[in-house]
Design a protein around this nucleic acid. Structure first.
Length: 485
DNA sequence: TTTTGAGTTGTTCGA
DNA sequence: GTCGAACAACTCAAA
């Protein structure tokens, strides 16, 4: 029997955390194989397991979807919005459009991988062509393995193994024009999804961020021009813009790590400087976080190091709340927590400081910190958030030694010596001298008076004594080392 | 199988 | 003020 080659029917491209047109393998493949391509986005928070998008992330998603739709319309296409469980919605879209294929780029969160597996099986059973692609990692979690074939649990050998692999492939070009169906499918209204907060606490976000593919590209270009060559030092100072601030863009896939990789290598003509390599290793940490999450899917709630199961964390809602609000009495901690609340982002150096304070000084579980970050960060990412919190909590991959307790005064003096950062976010103590700015309780009464500060009234006294808390933390963590009885 | 070297980001203490 | 050692022992990864 001779089969006539036929023009394949329309294809659905299911957008998820790949909200871009450039270097989008699923979109690229669809356009290569099909003359009619229908981009869809399906909102289904109930399928995200215990981790539906928090308030800040929902704000970003709203902006990013708007941006993607605009970019599609310029090319003669548009984004079809639907909500509900993914499988039946996709089946409905297939029925409505006569699509013969569905393409998407992979996600790696445990709830999502099992959902996607099921979706793929079912759609294929219905006779469809279904393909998934790597759109958000340089290296798939299963492509990197130790000599014995297992997953890595230590960053340095992991990243070395990555770097010894064949070159990262070049990013794919964005489409110039896209053919759509003669009759567009019905779409829900983005506004009906109510992703934006009812109270406008998002005002601080709007100034600082421009979600979407174009905003991501501008961000990267600015970083390459201004900060990439001084990254090693600049990244540690929360008072200056020394980091890339690409995290939310990467989380939503508005830019891919392949594009970042390529941009760095182009800017440095193939031989990245020491600073550029340090920056790339941060991309490596993102890769490592996905590697860990994929191979140890229980880690969002369970410590990677099993002995930490028997560690008893403190339950103290007063302390937790003070931490969340930025009212601990430790200026660098409070500055960080307020930056987070106001802008949806926190400088990485400060993330470590506030994380150490929560888990060591207050001895509150890292899971409480992870949960709060999840709800307040624009870049909330299950892989990175989980790994970061387990790391600072001492129970994760490549865990910081338990005796590594950050001193909030020392850290402040070292990385914010002029108090720029603290003054920006804790204005009520801005008049203090550099000598006192990181420890207001040591200021003389005349200095406090001049600065208009009444400790305990206009700014809190420290909620715990750091030196004391440190000793207690060390004792508590040392207990873990005692033989089990 | 055994051995060996090494491990993101720190702090304190005492010389 | 600066510097090196101690803080623990363990687990990972490769040889």
């Amino acid at each position: 029997m001779h089969l006539e080659p036929r023009t394949p029917g329309p294809a659905l491209v299911w957008f998820r955390q790949d909200l871009r047109l450039a270097d989008n393998p699923a979109l690229f493949q669809a356009l290569a194989n099909h003359s009619v391509v229908i981009p869809v986005y399906i909102l289904c928070p109930e399928e995200e397991g215990d981790w539906p998008a928090g308030g800040a992330t929902r704000w970003w998603l709203n902006q990013s979807l708007e941006s993607l739709d605009r970019d599609l319309r310029v090319r003669g296409s548009q984004l079809v919005l639907r909500s509900g469980p993914a499988l039946p919605e996709l089946q409905r879209l297939v029925a409505e459009s006569g699509a013969t294929a569905v393409y998407w780029n992979r996600r790696y969160e445990p709830a999502i991988t099992s959902r996607d597996q099921l979706v793929k099986t079912e759609l294929r059973r219905g006779g469809l062509t279904v393909e998934s692609f790597n759109g958000s990692l340089l290296f798939e979690p299963w492509e990197v393995a130790t000599k014995t074939g297992g997953p890595y649990q230590v960053f340095t050998p992991f990243w070395k193994a990555c770097l010894s692999k064949p070159t990262v492939s070049s990013p794919l070009d964005p489409p110039e024009a896209m053919g759509g169906p003669s009759q567009w499918l019905s779409t829900e209204a983005l506004g009906d999804w109510k992703l934006l907060p009812r109270l406008s606490w998002d005002a601080g976000f709007r100034e600082d961020w421009s979600p979407g593919e174009a905003g991501a590209a501008r961000h990267l270009a600015r970083f390459l021009k201004d900060a990439a060559s001084t990254y090693r030092e600049g990244r540690n100072a929360p008072g200056v813009a020394g980091t890339s601030r690409l995290s939310p863009h990467l989380h939503f896939g508005e830019i891919s790590p392949r594009q970042v990789w390529e941009a760095i290598h182009t800017a440095f003509r193939g031989t990245p400087s020491e600073d550029a390599r340090t920056f790339l290793s941060e991309i490596g940490w993102r890769e490592f976080a996905y590697h860990i999450l994929f191979h140890f899917p229980q880690t969002p709630t369970t410590p990677l190091r099993a002995d930490f199961q028997r560690f008893t964390w403190e339950t103290n809602s007063v302390h937790l709340r003070a931490w969340q609000r930025g009212l601990t009495g430790y200026p660098i901690v409070d500055a960080g927590m307020r930056e987070l609340w106001t802008t949806g982002w926190m400088h990485n150096r400060v993330r470590m400081i506030v994380g150490s304070f929560l888990t060591k000084d207050l001895r509150i579980s890292w899971t409480e910190g992870a949960r709060w970050f999840w709800d307040t960060l624009l870049d909330a990412d299950l892989a990175s958030n989980t790994m970061g919190w387990q790391w600072i909590g001492g129970c994760g991959a490549d865990a910081a030694p338990y005796f590594r307790v950050f001193n909030p005064m020392t850290q402040g003096e070292k990385f914010d010596p002029e108090g720029t950062y603290v003054r920006r976010w804790v204005p009520e103590i801005a008049q203090l001298s550099n000598r006192s700015i990181h420890q207001p309780w040591t200021a003389s009464s005349s200095e406090l008076e001049h600065a208009g500060i009444v400790l305990g009234t206009t700014y809190p006294q420290p909620i715990v004594d750091h030196a004391e808390a440190r000793v207690q933390a060390l004792a508590a963590f040392a207990k873990l080392k005692e033989p089990k009885r």
